[in-house]
Design a protein around this nucleic acid. Structure first.
Lengths: 342, 342
DNA sequence: ACCCGCATGCAAATCGTTTGGCATACTGCG
DNA sequence: CGCAGTATGCCAAACGATTTGCATGCGGGT
């Protein structure tokens, strides 16, 4: 059985629908219809056409199709950095969600630079993507379908702070997750519980959960126990050192992300402190490294995959038009996973 | 100063070049030329046109452009799983390399399933990408420009084993890297040096480097010290246990990747062995976790970013036509990074 | 015989650009 | 005045599909 050639003609000319039509002795219209099934074509004709398609190795040109139908079957995700596991996993969830509907995923790395965000946003709509999910940090808000918006369906990832009524949002339940983490610390018997937050932490869900758990438990919120990190390992390490230099030092610290927590563990080891004996530590995110660090990190799982996946579903529902209402907000639970560090 | 509207008309109709031309009182040809600079247009006309473009907020439709020019300014990378840090970093390097030339990056996750590889490959060429980099495991070899090939420039990532003369290849220098690692072990004083390889290790560069370093040092290659893992942490752990159950147990083990090495460390701890005191361990890849595990892992750096970046450069050189010869092979050095585990 | 309806297939317009070839106007030179 | 030469810009044909409306042939009911 001879291999069907991938391309006919000299070598670089791809087979077109018109050529198929000609060879099959039908019109382009008919070929199109047997391909799309949008109109009825006699069984015998279909046979003929399909056979010719096979012989010629015809593959439809998606660019032309997109031009006509105004759908590219392609979505874009703009993230700070795909290298960051959280975004990689999110992207994977998104890709899995839209793949089943035949959509491809186009990735943009902004490094958190607003100009790059904007230019990527412009770029992807120029490319005619059917939807965008914005997972980059500072969304300036001009995403969306409203006047001044992108003109394509969009979903934002992030904290539920500013809500654009035109854009769907999926966010982790930071508040409840943090609350559970700190609650766990209290239940263990800790009383002086510190927090290492992000750079602009006030008002964040993780901050709120920390406060609520404390006050619920009758423990006063002590500003001296609230320090700032920068989401990095070394930042966590430094913050931990200042915390441990306090007169009355904490017996537990909740870190607003895992990298920070790992840095805190580093610092504890440097000071000859045992974890969780001398000081308990819990993180947030549940990155891979959480199981590798010593002791294994008790942390709150940030559901990256599910976040990407539901973002994909929301996007799809808008693209297909099965939903067209106001912006939806779905917040995903962040379960506590207890290991050894607390 | 009034904001230029993102879209004119009712709300969903984008401005086209023809509308610009009409309003500017010139032909579409002229507008196209001021945009592309492909032909000379009088300065005054350019002014007018540009002004209209600004007022209307015109953005060229890239789909239409692609159809006409047969270039999508888009490349695809097919990887087993973007969630795997190695591929995420590789993808980032690739994206950075092609971004400067205006190319977008489309990511496909195959999970190593050959059918998915094939269908993605077909999908991306149907989508009209300008190039493909195959980083998925078993490349079946029908990539490339030759007869039966894809019809688009391609670059493969992987071991330099099978060489398709039509496709560029970029690969890490496994052999030299492994050699350096094992050499390091010898220099430390180890004599019984084991290896935990991948599932199908024979003939791989990492295997070769191990053997060469040993024989160079006058140490016989002992088949009993060569066991197989499956690239995973638990696989490494299991392999390490069988190694340590040997009558004459090794005093060092070289693991063919970091995850395996981390599993080996787990096993050592379980057996009450100190690392590197009782047994030295070195890995391969230098993943993030290598600095987090205890003790920090001595390993060989697998240059993921550089791999992606040079793949991008090779691809670009073919896309632009600045290179059109036979398949090039570039192998990237894998430097040893010494930490504490060996 | 007439008309209606069904099944089938085609012609042509359209999506929004790019581009090769040509037209026009003007300048300067013999 | 004629003409080469340049400067500028337009026409119309692509690119490769989808889609609307129409044409044709045919069977059956009355």
């Amino acid at each position: 059985m001879p291999e069907p050639p991938r391309s006919a003609g000299p070598d670089d000319t791809r087979v077109t629908l018109v050529q198929v039509a000609k060879l099959a002795g039908v019109s382009p219209t008919t070929v199109s219809h047997v391909l799309s099934g949008k109109r009825w074509v006699a069984e015998s004709t279909q046979e003929t056409v399909r056979e010719v398609i096979r012989q010629l190795g015809y593959r439809p040109n998606n660019v032309a199709r997109s031009l006509r139908t105004r759908r590219s079957k392609m979505i874009a995700v703009v993230v700070p950095d795909i290298t960051n596991t959280f975004y990689a996993v999110l992207t994977r969830g998104l890709a899995d969600a839209v793949d089943v509907a035949g959509y491809g995923t186009y990735v943009c790395n902004t490094d958190g630079i607003p100009e790059r965000e904007d230019s990527f946003l412009a770029d992807v709509v120029d490319r005619g993507v059917d939807g965008v999910v914005m997972a980059a940090g500072n969304v300036t808000g001009d995403v969306g379908a409203g006047p001044g918006g992108l003109g394509v369906p969009a979903v934002r990832i992030g904290s539920a702070s500013d809500d654009d009524p035109h854009v769907d949002l999926v966010a982790p339940d930071d508040e409840v997750g943090s609350h559970a983490a700190v609650r766990h610390l209290v239940d263990r018997g800790s009383r002086r519980i510190a927090i290492i937050e992000g750079p602009h932490a006030t008002g964040s869900g993780r901050d709120d959960g920390y406060r609520r758990a404390l006050t619920e438990s009758g423990i006063p919120v002590d500003p001296a126990l609230m320090v700032r990190g920068d989401w990095t390992r070394s930042g966590g390490q430094k913050a931990m050192h200042t915390l441990m230099a306090l007169d009355e030092r904490p017996d537990a610290v909740f870190c607003a992300n895992d990298l920070t927590a790992i840095g805190a563990i580093d610092a504890a080891h440097e000071l000859g402190l045992t974890v969780p004996g001398d000081v308990a530590i819990v993180g947030f995110d549940d990155v891979d490294a959480a199981t590798i660090v010593n002791p294994p990190l008790t942390t709150v799982r940030n559901p990256a995959y599910e976040t990407g996946y539901t973002a994909g579903e929301l996007l799809l529902s808008r693209i297909t038009g099965s939903y067209a209402g106001e912006g939806r907000i779905v917040v995903l639970p962040c379960p506590l996973v207890v290991r050894s560090s607390a």
